[in-house]
């Protein structure tokens, strides 16, 4: 008796929705990045579940690539936050309303 694929996907969908809510509602840059990470992971989980459904490993390779891209995204995103914090003394995304400074 294995867990049906739909249950994994429902789990992933819930995580994705929670992550999306975080990105939409929160205003601190760090929380928004965390929400994005959660959404990426939810998508990964769905991919692996679908991959098992079809008995293929390709989905896992995609997940591997997504992890690498997520690492790159976090490095650049956090570097941006640090740079913004140095200029503005805040990482509230609402304050980012100037084109140059």
């Amino acid at each position: 008796m294995t867990v049906p694929t739909t249950h994994f996907v429902i789990f992933a969908a819930l995580l994705f929705a929670i992550g999306a809510a975080g990105v939409l509602v929160r205003r601190s840059g760090i929380s928004i990045l965390l929400g994005i990470e959660l959404m990426l992971n939810a998508a990964n989980l769905a991919l692996v579940a679908f991959g098992r459904q079809h008995g293929q490993l390709d989905a896992q390779v995609f997940v591997f690539f997504v992890m690498a891209v997520a690492a790159a995204e976090v490095a650049v995103g956090l570097a941006l936050l640090v740079a913004i914090f140095r200029k503005q003394r805040s990482i509230d995304v609402d304050r980012l309303n100037v084109m140059r400074w």
């Binding site: 294995t2 694929t5 739909t6 996907v9 429902i10 969908a13 929705a17 929670i18 008995g55």
Partner: peptide, 22 residues
């Protein structure tokens, strides 16, 4: 929006019957 997304996807997914994993 997030609530609609979650409820909608669960509603759709719960109705699907798939074969056991290959």
């Amino acid at each position: 929006l997030a609530g609609i997304a979650a409820a909608g996807s669960i509603a759709v997914l719960a109705g699907i019957r798939v074969a056991a994993p290959a």
